[in-house]
């Protein structure tokens, strides 16, 4: 990861797009291997899913995005009907943190990423 300077954005401090690509690879594998949540990923196109995760991580890393809560709501409404709840959201947050730790992202940046990701909770869970 690059040296942090005061003028750099969160996205730049984490390492930009290269960091997102590295993170998607680790993050998606963690999610798919987790028996608590991987049933929500049955019957999805894996390439499209990886692309969505890249868009999500880019947003969570403070990068350029077109995030709208409505999109997040629509995308997860089917899963909410399947029983998606806080415990599953927590599991995903756990993998996000684990991924960033594996990539040696400093703790203070992980906290910032986690708080951006956390801000999507109510949209994801349709509340």
């Amino acid at each position: 990861m690059s040296e942090a300077t005061p003028n750099q954005s969160l996205f730049e401090q984490i390492g930009g797009e290269a960091a997102v690509n590295a993170a998607v690879d680790i993050f998606y594998r963690k999610v798919l291997a987790d028996h608590r949540i991987n049933r929500f990923f049955d019957n999805v196109d894996m390439e499209q899913q990886a692309a969505k995760q890249k868009a999500f991580l880019t947003m969570a890393f403070g990068g350029p995005n077109n995030y709208t809560g409505a999109d997040m709501r629509n995308a997860h409404s089917r899963l909410v009907k399947m029983g998606l709840d806080d415990s599953h959201f927590d599991a995903v947050m756990e993998h996000l943190g684990g991924t960033l730790k594996e990539l040696n992202v400093p703790d203070n940046l992980i906290t910032q990423v986690a708080s951006i990701a956390e801000s999507t909770r109510n949209d994801v869970l349709g509340r």
Binding site: E47, Q48, A51, K52, K54, A55, T58, P64, N65, N66, D71
Partner: peptide, 9 residues
């Protein structure tokens, strides 16, 4: 289109 940044394809 969606993300306009080369992610969603």
């Amino acid at each position: 289109f969606s993300c306009k940044q080369g992610a969603c394809q």
